[in-house]
Design a protein around this nucleic acid. Structure first.
Lengths: 192, 192
DNA sequence: TTGCAAAGCGGAGGATGCCTCCGTATCGTA
DNA sequence: TACGATACGGAGGCATCCTCCGCTTTGCAA
């Protein structure tokens, strides 16, 4: 059964849609650079819109954070399907896993601030997780069918391993990628 | 090797110690009742001290949250040693596990707001976790030695099971306790 | 193409919270 | 008992939150 679609309320009118995109982009970039405690007024300034415009579209800080998070999850899912089309199964899985190094409950992260606001087991997080899992299952199943990974792998195993990398304190991207390389070697079928 | 002691900077001078206690107690009660986004001014009012007094002792919101969290962790650890003295091994373990139902990354919880501020893998959390694990190992090892739990149990297993109960969305205490009863039955050695 | 209703925009202003400063009070030791 | 060191607390300045309302833009129907 396909999961519930990601909650996204992008407006249809041109000027409103343009400002929605500007706000989500400004928020994402600002959070990545300064952490999520940047003021809404600062985000509106960086988006080039008025604070009233931000509040018309996002009635609370949490609403904006959700929109940014959904945008990221949508990208994670889109990439899975893109990699599936463009790459061999194992390479697709590897590229996909590499693309979300850096996500997790680190200091000032989107996920951690949304956890405060909604709780870790909220319906919101569960829908997002379900969508990511659907995409991940596609890639993993294809890699298995191609004989390119161990047959006993569950998606939960893979996500756990990547989550472990993400849990490291302030991990350097270089080290994160090196650790992922190690994990990817381990996913290969055992020599026989 | 015993873990690093919990970070606690309770002052020694009588009036300062008294206000420290009042602030930590007021903060804990307010957070339990209204979530952790209560203003510091409100907490100072409820503690019956001035905002300057709060800031002299806790230079930031995070510092106060840490003090409250450490106080809770200290209680968790103290209870383990108390139960160890007062109860049979299995009963001690059961009472201890029951005493921290309700902790976790729920909406507005202390742990989740501290995760935003510090990161889930921060030294602060690691010290707290190490202290809890030391206390937990004491109780589990004694229950094993008495033959009252399965021999193959690791503390991580038990914590995972209780953590799973805590992860439920807005779980009712009655349901949480019922689920714990189920887990406790499962911890018993298999009939042979 | 034009007109117009509906939707959108944005920034001033009031409320609240954060945080510092400094005159006053209390503690604890000699 | 005295006094130096430490603690107290609330006013005030600044930043952020959030609403309101006059003005602007959009998009559809005639």
């Amino acid at each position: 059964m396909a999961p519930q679609p990601l909650p996204c309320a992008r407006p249809t009118r041109a000027d409103a849609a343009r400002n929605y995109d500007r706000l989500v982009t400004a928020a994402r970039e600002t959070f990545a650079e300064h952490g999520t405690d940047t003021s809404l007024e600062e985000i509106a300034r960086r988006a080039g819109v008025g604070i009233g415009t931000l509040y018309r579209r996002f009635p609370s800080r949490t609403a904006l954070l959700e929109a940014v998070y959904v945008d990221e999850i949508q990208s994670v899912c889109d990439r899975a399907y893109d990699f599936d089309r463009e790459l061999e199964p194992f390479d697709a899985l590897a590229a996909w896993l590499r693309s979300f190094l850096g996500y997790g409950l680190s200091k000032g992260s989107l996920a951690s601030e949304l956890t405060v606001a909604l709780g870790k087991e909220s319906p919101f997080f569960q829908i997002c997780k379900a969508n990511v899992q659907e995409a991940g299952h596609l890639l993993l199943d294809k890699a298995k069918a191609a004989g390119e990974v161990r047959d006993d792998l569950e998606l939960a195993d893979v996500m756990r391993l990547v989550g472990g990398i993400n849990m490291g304190r302030d991990i350097e991207p270089k080290q994160a990628n090196r650790l992922l390389d190690i994990v990817l070697c381990g996913l290969r079928p055992a020599a026989s």
